[in-house]
Design a protein around this nucleic acid. Structure first.
Lengths: 244, 244
DNA sequence: CTGATTATCGTCAAGCAGACGACTAAGATC
DNA sequence: GATCTTAGTCGTCTGCTTGACGATAATCAG
């Protein structure tokens, strides 16, 4: 077949799916919606939808995000393309290629259902991925389509990306304390970090944090300085994730 | 619009494009093909083609790779998905979404032209991207479509990935010396590395290199030990890329 | 006031990286 | 064959970063 022959190409549907992650109650959570129609009716899935004829992929992702959560991409949240999934059998009805996007957002109010989703919820990623955890015995029904794989890829991307970038601040409100940022790392990585070494590391990395001058005691204990995210996007040297 | 409504979706063509990188003559080079038909007739472009109705995206990429270069993905070369490009205007004829893939390969014999490509060649990435270099004044015509952007993204992915993975060995023949591996890093990063510190680093990282017992003098000078790539894929701590 | 909690500063030792000296073993040249 | 050139390999030293952890500070609950 001749490349780029516009008269002979197989028909594809192109969608965007969203892995929307946040940290709530010290746990990494993902947004999922309940499917209102077959296939996989009643099962949980990632939010998403068709790319329209005149919009770019990132525009489609931002539009779906706004429709499902009311979240604007520029309001502190981070949106990036994750990967594309195109197994011929991934949708039983037709050939669908899905361009998955990853969104990192601060803790949000309860999600609002939109489109054909009968409801939407935040759930810990361990529950959605069917891992046995302290909360859930491993009996949760798996996500629809290949969404468990997509979610797992998104979680892994988030886990590795906060190592060498300042993206962990995307999980925080506009102003936050060093302790709050540390609890983000602990929730995403599922480990405990030494508060003293963490404090030394983040305050010693130029461009990572900018003090706002204010303090807060919302976590209890001694008042903590408030910071905003600095201009730096790459952390060098990176934040080291403890083994195991 | 209802997500996943199979009766109403805009028509898309889905293609794979390939960023095939290798190191030749101490320079990072990419494979490009000359377009034999409009649009951009006669201009250089990345190899690629339509995804067939029954094949997965990675299968399509491996097939195109074999068609354009005769290279089998399992023969030491590395293939991974890079990113997806779907600007509505990126192809003047119709809506085309392209799933770009990145291939890292050892230095290959001259590429063979296939499909509608009148010819294919290896070219230094600086030349293809229109950067002024010692070889070329910046008068090279830019790549067709948005392929310059795709190539730049692929080069950046390769540059960062050899930092924290053992992927640089994908640029080497099955057996190679520490010096040859160092010249790969130097070509990809465009820097000079200290041979003594590099040797200490790579031979001291467990699982990176496995000695084969043989030696070679193909680079001149004292005979060097031959190695194969070890089982490790992640480098911890990473190879540090010198500043600027 | 006392204890609990969280934030922040400091100290010390181990590990790693960059700079670089020294030596080895081959081919090339005289 | 002596010497030069080239590349590979082994060591040393110094400074920086990290991990472990002691000590102090500032708030709230009782």
């Amino acid at each position: 077949m001749s490349p780029y022959d516009p008269s002979a190409f197989p028909p594809f549907a192109v969608t965007v799916d969203l892995v929307v992650l946040t940290v709530r109650h010290h746990a990494l959570c993902a947004l999922s919606v309940r499917r209102g129609e077959p296939p996989f009716q009643g099962r949980w899935a990632l939010p998403g939808g068709f790319v329209r004829a005149d919009e770019d992929l990132s525009q489609a992702a931002a539009r779906e995000l706004a429709e499902e959560t009311g979240l604007r991409a520029q309001s502190g949240a981070h949106l990036e393309q994750l990967a594309t999934y195109g197994d011929p059998q991934r949708d039983p009805r037709m050939r669908v290629v899905s361009v998955a996007h990853l969104v990192l957002a601060p803790d949000l109010p309860a999600p609002r259902a939109g489109g054909d989703a009968r409801s939407a919820r935040w759930a810990p990623v361990g529950t959605l991925l069917g891992e046995d955890g302290p909360d859930h015995p491993g009996d949760a029904p798996p996500l629809a389509f290949d969404h468990a794989r997509i979610l797992a890829d998104g979680v892994e991307r988030a886990r590795s990306k906060i190592e060498y970038s300042s993206l962990a601040t995307a999980f925080c409100p506009p102003e936050f304390t060093v302790g709050e940022l540390r609890r983000v790392y602990e929730a995403v990585w599922g480990v405990a970090l030494d508060p003293r070494n963490f404090h030394r590391k983040v305050t010693g990395t130029v461009g990572f944090l900018v003090p706002t001058g204010g303090t807060t005691t919302r976590q209890g204990g001694r008042p903590a300085q408030l910071f905003r995210a600095g201009g730096a996007t790459l952390l060098n040297p990176p934040m080291l994730r403890p083994e195991v």
